[in-house]
């Protein structure tokens, strides 16, 4: 008989072990040869200058950024899937990535190229656009009391993101520069990840995690139905937009760091569900850890498949994610019958 009696610590031990393996691999594999022994030396404060700068300044920030973005997307996806009670929803559902893309085009048009605290201003503008979009959607939805119907929010999000893409396409077709540069920006990934970006991401990740853990019980109840949630004192017209805003903020911060990365936010919560069940507290922790393991693993693949060069991370996540998505689709179809 199926039970949900999986103690969290028994789940976490193997997950943490795999995470540690990916961590060490990420630090030791690369063009410059640094065996595990060297990695340990460097981590304990020894080692030669070249290995130090490669491991500490190039590989470590890259791993950290990928782990942060992976867990952010996983958590953001989990929230979205919970709020829409739909397993096929991802963190970009409300058009965050198209807002970010428009932000990039605008930044290119304004000729912005400098950095602020080690983060490119271009990325900061992209992030601001996503945030404006989120609050715009929530604001409009509240004006018309749309929050009762989640379909209305979705339609609103889709309509607005189409509008943003249209403006973006206009800019792209208007100037050659934007065409070339925005194409490159979409390939960003973790190629140039630095520690400032990771530090920018951490507050969103931590705040989001704390918020979810405090609201885990509410999310559990919300899963049953709007009516039950309401009858148990959950104010849906506050809970739903707040959750959406939290998810969208986390997703927007992740887009700022690595561009939009497909499928991670969609399928990580599913793997989490297979491991931890539906209970939100356990599921959140497991999903977070999975995201922090999977994306660095994919990133490792993206920079080792071809010697000395990188494949855009989206190609890797999509190649692995798409078949999973199809499997999921058929499974949920079958489950309905």
């Amino acid at each position: 008989m199926e039970t949900t009696n999986n103690k969290l610590k028994f789940l976490l031990i193997p997950l943490i072990f795999i995470f540690a393996v990916i961590f060490l691999l990420s630090l030791s594999v690369g063009d410059i040869n640094t065996p595990l022994k060297t990695v340990f030396k460097v981590l304990t404060g020894n080692g030669d200058a070249l290995s130090r700068s490669v491991i500490i300044q190039i590989r470590l920030p890259r791993f950290l950024a990928a782990a942060a973005v992976g867990s952010m997307l996983a958590i953001a996806g989990l929230i979205m899937q919970t709020i829409f009670r739909n397993p096929l929803v991802d963190p970009y559902f409300l058009g965050i990535s198209s807002a970010a893309e428009l932000g990039i085009s605008v930044a290119i048009m304004l000729g912005v190229s400098s950095t602020l605290f080690g983060i490119s201003i271009m990325s900061i503008i992209a992030f601001s656009f996503s945030v404006i979009l989120i609050f715009g959607i929530v604001k409009i939805a509240r004006l018309k009391n749309f929050l009762e119907s989640k379909i209305a929010i979705v339609l609103l999000g889709i309509a607005i993101s189409y509008m943003l893409s249209a403006v973006n396409n206009f800019l792209i077709f208007y100037k050659k520069d934007i065409f070339i540069k925005s194409t490159f920006w979409a390939l960003k990934g973790f190629n140039t990840a630095n520690i400032s970006e990771f530090l920018f991401a951490v507050p969103f990740l931590v705040a989001g995690l704390i918020y979810i853990l405090f609201n885990a019980k509410k999310m559990n109840i919300y899963l049953s139905s709007d009516l039950t949630a309401h009858s148990l004192g959950i104010n849906l017209s506050k809970f739903v937009p707040l959750m959406l805003a939290v998810s969208a903020l986390i997703a927007a911060a992740s887009v700022m760091i690595a561009g939009s990365i497909s499928f991670i936010g969609l399928f990580t919560p599913h793997i989490g569900r297979l491991i931890a069940g539906e209970e939100r507290k356990k599921l959140t922790i497991v999903t977070l850890l999975l995201g922090a393991t999977l994306l660095p693993a994919f990133d490792l693949i993206s920079r080792t498949v071809l010697p000395s060069q990188e494949i855009p991370i989206n190609i890797i996540t999509a190649l692995i994610g798409a078949p999973f998505f199809i499997y999921l689709f058929f499974r949920s179809k079958n489950a309905q019958h």
């Binding site: 009858s231 004192g233 539906e278």
Partner: peptide, 19 residues
């Protein structure tokens, strides 16, 4: 206060794998 005063069960049963 409503949730503390009134207990409500809807006709449809939740379809979720919780304990």
């Amino acid at each position: 206060e409503i949730s503390q005063t009134i207990g409500f069960l809807e006709s449809e049963m939740p379809n979720i794998p919780l304990s």
